[in-house]
Nucleic acid binder design. Structure first.
Length: 235
DNA sequence: GATTGGAAATGCGGTTATAA
DNA sequence: TTATAACCGCATTTCCAATC
């Protein structure tokens, strides 16, 4: 556990069949706003993170336990209320990649779930690919509202689709599609917090022609519906 | 106006095999 | 080791309807 405690950007946990914490690392303890690990043990994420976000975490845990199938590389946005920030300069929102794996006994029965949630790494600026992909990132920022396709983006960078995917994973830790989704949802969260646009209008400005699809995606990634998210910013 | 859900289509990602 | 191609399963998107 000392090993996991030494990872400042990675939350680690083990939960039992009921989705209750049995092991956590320091980073998770801090992110939950608790001072001692034992304050988390024996509780589900719904209890530790009250509200829809915690419910979403618990639903994920129970899904892994029920289906026995891991969750890999799930891009998620997290939102830190003022009370949970360790330092006033700590950003209010951030991104992480979450992995959850079922734990099994000798008979193969699922007895719990283990997971890590890693803060998205800073782009690798030392990579020789960084300059080309920085242009792509800029392009995505400017044109995220358009109907962008991976083959088009590959042509834009002068790479094959496979080269592009390997390159974005190497430099940004994300697939091209995840990069686009991240930029779109960052724009959406900004619009929800700074404008009075309707959800439909926000969806359109972020490149989603169907507001219902936008709402579902937003809830999957952020853990809140757009209107719930807007409410957290105004309270 | 916002959210949820279903059905169908399709684009994308993961995996594997092969070649350079 | 890296690049490419092919295949398959799944997630995403679109369209539509219902409900609040």
């Amino acid at each position: 556990m000392e090993l996991f405690d030494s990872l400042p950007d990675t939350m680690f946990f083990v939960k039992d069949r009921a989705g209750k914490y049995v092991m956590v690392n320091q980073t998770l303890m801090h992110r939950s706003g608790k001072k001692h690990k034992k304050e988390l043990l024996g509780h589900t994420a719904s209890v530790i993170f009250p509200g829809p976000i915690g419910d979403n975490y618990t639903q994920q845990d129970l899904q892994v336990i029920r289906d026995g199938a891991p969750i890999r590389d799930r891009l998620e946005m997290y939102h830190l209320p003022h009370s949970r920030r360790q330092h006033p300069t700590e950003p209010q929102m951030g991104w992480c990649l979450t992995h959850k794996f079922p734990l099994r006994d000798k008979e193969g029965q699922v007895i719990g779930v283990a997971g890590i949630s890693r803060a998205l790494p800073r782009p690798d600026e030392r990579s020789s690919l960084y300059a080309r992909l920085a242009v792509l990132s800029d392009h995505l920022q400017k044109h995220h509202a358009e109907d962008l396709r991976i083959p088009t983006l590959a042509l834009f960078t002068g790479m094959s689709e496979d080269q592009l995917e390997r390159a974005t994973r190497q430099v940004f830790g994300l697939t091209p599609k995840q990069m686009l989704m991240k930029i779109r949802l960052e724009t959406a969260s900004q619009l929800l917090g700074t404008t009075h646009l309707t959800i439909t209008e926000v969806a359109h400005q972020c490149g989603y022609s169907d507001h219902s699809a936008f709402t579902r995606l937003f809830r999957n990634v952020v853990g809140l519906t757009p209107s719930q998210y807007r409410a957290t910013l105004t309270h």
